[in-house]
Design a protein around this nucleic acid. Sequence first.
DNA 1: AAGGCTCACAACCGCTTTTTA
DNA 2: TTAAAAAGCGGTTGTGAGCCT
Length: 326
Amino acid sequence: MGRAPCCDKANVKKGPWSPEEDSKLKEYIEKYGTGGNWIALPQKAGLKRCGKSCRLRWLNYLRPNIKHGEFSENEDKIICSLFASIGSRWSIIAAQLPGRTDNDIKNYWNTKLKKKLLGMSPNLLHHQKKLPSYNNNPPPLHQTPTSQSFSSLFSCSNNNYYTPFKSSFEPTSFLPILTNTTSLLETQDQTLFSSNYLMFGGDNQASCSSSDGSCTQISYGGREMKQQGMGFAQSYISSGLEDHNQKFMLGYGGGGGGDHNPTVCGEDNSSGYNFVGGDHQIQNPVVYDQLEDIKQLIITNGCNNNFLFDENKTHQQDQKLMYYYY
DNA sequence: AAGGCTCACAACCGCTTTTTA
DNA sequence: TTAAAAAGCGGTTGTGAGCCT
């Protein structure tokens, strides 16, 4: 047996909303709110509409501060970047664009933006709808994509935080690949180290820092980067830029002096490779629930300067995640 | 002027997720 | 704990406006 219909389909009006209906709905909600029950609302408001229809009309059109009209260049970039990394999760994308609705963005993407970009970056349209779930079977390393510069993706803000998704870089997906740095180190795989990835270090594991304080990698630019990894650390303990507010900081790999215990980052003198973040001494399996949390972190905060991190929910010491850009 | 076509966008449909009793 | 209801979400469709022939 199927679900009972939410309303009497035969007696509800469908199709475009009239100005009278709009004002009825608007007035009612402004006066009484939704009461947390859209199904009952139309009757109370004197509308012959389905509750779902009312909800949609309110959310997409009538509620205050809805932006209509042209999308700005900056909005375009944000949409493209987020679409590239998370796919068609319109509500999440909309959350990054104040005043825009998911429906609005979806329509804009389908009618204009997609076409605009088609000629520019075919890969963008080949994104995966959802992140692949590799669980404990990450793809073999030889599948690692080739290097691609991150420099256009990340820009440095005034307060030494990096802000991803600001430029025209269009990664096609986040792909979680490895769960601990040890296996990464053991591979000594030049391809991997010279590729693009995001890595999340554990507590007090600075990523991309150098213990000699040179810290040139955080100021981005001015030096040649042999490697394009990006790392996050909850506190930036080894660079003299400790962040007591526990903001997540993003740094650039390819450090100066090479770092040491417990974080492997910067330039590793023994291997000659550069890498970022993580703890090579501790092997813990990733709790894969965290993948969603990290994804959410990126999605939610990807366009902000400060990477706020809900420690209780999203972070446990010694658990590391790596995302691979390709 | 009329018909056909394309495009943009509002709205709907149905599935999934969350909430509630 | 569970099932039903409600809300959320994304894909799809319907419709009107504008353009072209």
